[in-house]
Design a protein around this nucleic acid. Structure first.
Lengths: 194, 194
DNA sequence: TTATAAAAATGACCGTAGTCAATATTTATT
DNA sequence: AATAAATATTGACTACGGTCATTTTTATAA
């Protein structure tokens, strides 16, 4: 009887997203408050939750979009042909993911995929990362005894491990990437690792 | 003038811990409410936070103790000599960690070690896991081209990866352990993995 | 015994995410 | 234009973790 989604609704949702993105740009992800978003968007609190299941769902959208930008940049220069190139391609993304503890927590919380059809935005970027890295591994100078997808999943596991250990008073950004490299040397080129 | 910690305080803390542990045994970790704990312990809410920095700090203590029990059990039968044994030794611990989404989240949040001297209870169990697994690897039938500690850290990274992917409608417990095994075959015995 | 200072406990209060029954708006039908 | 039904918005309300100025208890010194 009615078309399902009114223009009004689409506009409200877009406004909420825009206002939230601006607030994050100004004060960081962890400082975002739903009440601030609805106030600046000029809508009631309930409206927010009519558009997003919860605050995390909004963060997922925004962080997912940001990760996608980093993946675009990582893909841009063509294939990563060895471990060093792989590490440096992933570097900006990993720096972003560890910029705030809050960001890393949200990402880890949503990295576990749901059913294929209902993959969340962050889980989708994880799938995309696997595809990209698997592509590099298949064509590059890496071990060939196991599938490139399995190897790519391992790369992701090691990235998370390195990032988790980074949230450590003694570990700085540089150490994180060095640690990541040691893992990948042993994972992707076991013959050379000795 | 006064001895620093009164007996009263030690008792209160013990009571809070006991009550919380019971509540968790009855209703699971995620359902724990601070208000319920203080009510059943017969103390005021503020008292809870005088004893524990926040709710997470209490969960860390309790979950840390539980993990230690699983590690005791994993160590009990002596060395794990190959990948299959390693997987089955880790199995009960991984099943516990994935029993509730909430448990896994708390564990991941606290896995990143702080400075050595202020290692939290969960971070300590991660160190202990590394030590145990590194011991198995050093003496067992595993690759020798990289250090056993690096290999053990990888085992942990893969365990977390397998558990994260488990929180997926399509993935059951069995699949989680199979996935874990594929990772470890490729990680610990690259020569045989083909 | 009393005075006193440190330690412990209290509970009203706050911040913030999330709910839901009531109301308002939009669009299709006649 | 009036009616009806689906869609969208509202804001008071709840749940729950966490704070802090105040009060109570405890142990020591005079």
């Amino acid at each position: 009887m009615l078309k399902q989604t009114q223009k009004r609704s689409i506009e409200t949702r877009a406004k909420l997203l825009r206002v939230a993105t601006e607030a994050i740009a100004a004060n960081g992800h962890g400082a975002l408050r739903v009440e601030e978003v609805v106030k600046n968007a000029g809508v009631a609190k309930g409206t927010f939750f009519a558009h997003f299941k919860d605050k995390d769902a909004l963060m997922e959208l925004i962080i997912g979009a940001q990760i996608d930008e980093y993946l675009d940049a990582a893909e841009e220069p063509g294939r990563a042909k060895n471990v060093d190139e792989l590490v440096s391609r992933m570097r900006p993304l990993m720096d972003f993911m560890t910029r705030e503890r809050y960001i890393f927590d949200v990402i880890v919380r949503h990295s576990g995929a749901a059913v294929k059809e209902e993959l969340g935005p962050i889980a989708q970027t994880f799938e995309r990362t696997i595809e990209i890295v698997a592509g590099w591994i298949a064509a590059g100078d890496f071990r060939k005894d196991v599938s490139e997808v399995l190897l790519a999943e391992g790369v992701q596991a090691f990235a998370i491990q390195a990032m988790a250990l980074h949230f450590c008073a003694i570990n700085n950004q540089e150490e994180m990437h060095l640690r990541f490299k040691s893992y990948l040397d042993a994972w992707l080129n076991p013959a050379l690792a000795s």
